[in-house]
Design a protein around this nucleic acid. Structure first.
Lengths: 155, 155
DNA sequence: TATTGTTATACTCTATAACTATA
DNA sequence: TATAGTTATAGAGTATAACAATA
């Protein structure tokens, strides 16, 4: 790097922020590629993951967690329903609400996402010892997630 | 998380890959927000960064590094030229080539990106000790960057 | 004929706003 | 009147393919 006078002198590789950006983008692309054969995107996977973690959920609360536009969630759920991975049911207590339920087929699809991620992580962490990998995990969990951003905003 | 029989039992937060995806996406969004006041995107910043690291460069070699479509690079360079941050010059040795040169104004803009990233990293790493931050940096550099992906593909 | 760069165009993703139905 | 969800539409970002200039 050329260090001109008065310039912050930092190569990309020295910046934790940039490294995280690049790794994150790459993992996203790899997961997207792996899921594409099933016609899904990472965001479909996150939605299934949340349904698996929390059981049947209203669209409203999915919106909070996924932090996407309502119209985007509609498209996601349409895809999942068309693929038979989830289903919308009317909430009898308030007929405006939809309760979203993951199907057994959705469970299988979610398993597929996790095994795709297993593969990706194995490749990524190939040069780290098990102790390093553990420590990396712990350190990453200490990184402060930015205010107002949810973990599932991805597409 | 509900653990159905036969399902990979892993909460999102336990997956290094997912955590990296979410952090990366978030940092990208934050950097984009900070740069937007200057009419720039992270990708403009990476381009300037590469020009700063390597000096005047042909578009062809910028393509290799940034790993974007040629038409996208044209748009990026048009933006940078219109903003007076870089300039295209014909290569006298091969008049098909453009040599891209960063201007002094571009240098200042790049400094701005680095200081924006400083702010972002300080927030992100607020809960890590200096030793933790150093270790995180070292571990991240051991993570294997996926084949065929460059560090500057972002927009 | 191959290479460098550009333009024109279409495609995807996302956001905005108007709409329906229920409360 | 407010809320849950949907639709229609426009905008940004990206990729594809045809093109002009030079080798």
């Amino acid at each position: 790097m050329v260090y001109p006078p008065g310039t912050v002198a930092l190569v990309d590789e020295e910046r934790v922020g940039l490294v995280l950006m690049h790794l994150g983008r790459d993992i996203d692309a790899r997961l997207r590629r792996q899921l594409s054969t099933a016609g899904l995107t990472p965001r479909h996977g996150f939605t299934l993951s949340h349904l698996c973690d929390n059981g049947p959920t209203s669209q409203q609360s999915l919106l909070d967690v996924l932090d996407v536009d309502p119209s985007v969630l509609v498209a996601i759920l349409n895809d999942l329903e068309n693929a038979g991975l989830a289903e919308r049911k009317r909430d009898p207590e308030d007929r405006r609400r939809h309760i979203v339920v993951m199907s057994e087929k959705g469970r299988v699809a979610l398993t597929g996402m996790h095994s795709a991620m297993n593969t990706i992580e194995q490749e990524m962490l190939a040069d780290l010892s098990p102790a390093d990998a553990t420590q990396l995990r712990e350190l990453l969990l200490k990184v402060r997630p930015p205010a107002g951003t949810s973990p599932c905003s991805g597409d």
